[in-house]
Each structure stands twice: as C-alpha cells, then as structure tokens.
Computed example of a mutant assay.
Amino acid sequence: MEQTTYFEDCEIGFSRVTTGRTITETDFVVHAGHTGDFFPYNMNAEFMKKTPFGQRIAHGIMVFSIGVGLTASIINPVAFSYGYDWLRFIRPVFIDDTTRTRATIVAKEDDPKRHDPGRVIERCEVINRRDEVVLATDRIYIVERRKTA
C-alpha cells in the first residue's frame, strides 16, 4: 500500500502493530545457511538442553530481520530508511514463538546533513505472544517536508 506522509504529518506517539509471524525451525536453518552462523545456541538441540534456556534460541539478527520486515507494509514515496541507532536483544525467541512488531514514532528532528528533509525516529519493538518485548531498535527515516509556496 502506498501512503504519502510528509515530515509535518508524522506525530510523536503514533504507533502501529504488525500481524504475527511464527518462528520455525526452517527459519533457523535458512538463516544459519545464509549467514554461516551455526553457533550451538541456535543449532544444537542437545547442547541447549543443558543450558538454562533448555532449547535452541533464535539468532538475534534473524529476529531483527523478521521483525523489521513485518513493518514493511506501507510504501511512503517521500521517505527512506537511513539506518538504525541501536539494537538490543532483550529476551530469547524460541522455535514456534509468534512475534509481531510495534513501531512507535518517538522523535522528530532536523537532518544535519540535508537542508530540506527531516529525520523521524521510529522505535521498533518485537514482541512475543505474551506481549513481552524481545528485541528493540530505533529506525531512522529521512522524510521530505512539504514544499512551501
């Protein structure tokens, strides 16, 4: 869906929640194959039985990728993603956990590198079925301002 939202239209506190996505064993295997990350915490069920987790935990970067991907439902032709300021893995995600992402505008500021557009900071929180935050990051958007006559 396309929706033009200029810098002036972005409201601090505006929040949206995505649909859910169940994390599967296939996700673990595909992610490990793509990245080469076969760390035993993610891939060795027998090893993990002996840990406090008791089972394999999802790769943090995989949870990040899926969580951010879930927010990609609106195309804004006057904005683009500039990157992420910080990233925290707060709780483990396991096979068969269903996650969704809550994205909330937390700040707006002038862009020190560009004259016209501004920066909009959106806090992305991946949450599990118990509404616990499992991952948090701040995404920075560069957003055009309305042209004035």
Results as ranks from 00 to 15, higher is better:
Arg119Lys: 14
Asp116Phe: 06
Asn128Gly: 03
Ile140Asn: 09
Gly69Arg: 11
Gly118Ser: 06
Ser73His: 07
Tyr141Ala: 09
Arg114Ser: 15
Phe94Cys: 04
Phe94Asp: 02
Phe89Trp: 12
Ile74Asn: 05
Val93Arg: 07
Arg88Pro: 02
Pro92Ser: 00
Ile140Ser: 10
Arg91Gln: 13
Thr104Val: 11
Ile90Phe: 04
Phe94Ser: 08
Val93Lys: 05
Ile75Cys: 04
Thr99Gln: 08
Ala103Thr: 08
Ile90Ser: 12
Gly60Glu: 04
Ala58Met: 06
Glu125Tyr: 06
Ile121Asn: 09
Asp111Leu: 02
Asp131Trp: 07
His115Phe: 07
Pro117Asp: 01
Lys113Pro: 04
Ile57Met: 07
Ala103Arg: 06
Ser73Tyr: 00
Val63Cys: 09
Ile66Asn: 12
Asp116Pro: 02
Tyr141Glu: 02
Ala58Arg: 05
Lys113Phe: 12
Thr71Gly: 11
Gly118Phe: 03
Arg102Phe: 04
His115Trp: 08
Val120Leu: 08
Ile95Asn: 12
Asp96Pro: 03
Ser65Cys: 04
Asp138Val: 08
Gly83Lys: 08
Gly67Asp: 08
Arg91Met: 06
Asp110Thr: 07
Ala107Asp: 14
Gly69Gln: 12
Ile95Val: 15
Thr104His: 08
Asp111Ile: 05
Asp131Pro: 10
His115Gly: 06
Ile105Gly: 00
Val93Phe: 06
Val133Trp: 13
Val68Thr: 10
Ala58Asp: 09
Gly60Phe: 11
Pro117Phe: 00
Asn128Arg: 09
Ile105Ala: 02
Ser65Ala: 15
Ile75Ala: 04
Thr104Asp: 11
Leu135Lys: 00
Ile74Val: 15
Val106Pro: 01
Gly118Asp: 05
Pro77Asp: 03
Leu87Trp: 05
Ile127Val: 15
Val68Ser: 07
Ile74Leu: 12
Phe94His: 15
Phe64Asn: 07
Pro112Glu: 10
Gly118Lys: 01
Arg129Gln: 14
Ser65Asn: 08
Asp85Gly: 15
Glu122His: 00
Asp138Trp: 03
Met62Ser: 07
Ala107Thr: 03
Gly69Val: 13
Thr101Cys: 14
Thr99Ile: 15
Tyr84Phe: 15
Thr137Asp: 10
Pro92Trp: 02
Glu122Gly: 01
Asn128Trp: 07
Ala58Thr: 10
Phe89Asp: 00
Pro77Ile: 01
Arg130Ile: 05
Pro77Val: 00
Ile127Leu: 13
Arg123Leu: 15
Asp111Trp: 01
Glu132Tyr: 09
Ala58Asn: 06
Arg130Tyr: 12
Arg130Glu: 15
Glu132Lys: 13
Arg102Asp: 05
Ile61Phe: 14
Ser81Pro: 09
Ala103Gly: 06
Cys124Val: 09
Arg130Phe: 13
Cys124Gly: 02
Arg139Pro: 04
Glu125His: 03
Leu87Asn: 09
Pro77Thr: 03
Leu70Gly: 13
Lys108Asn: 07
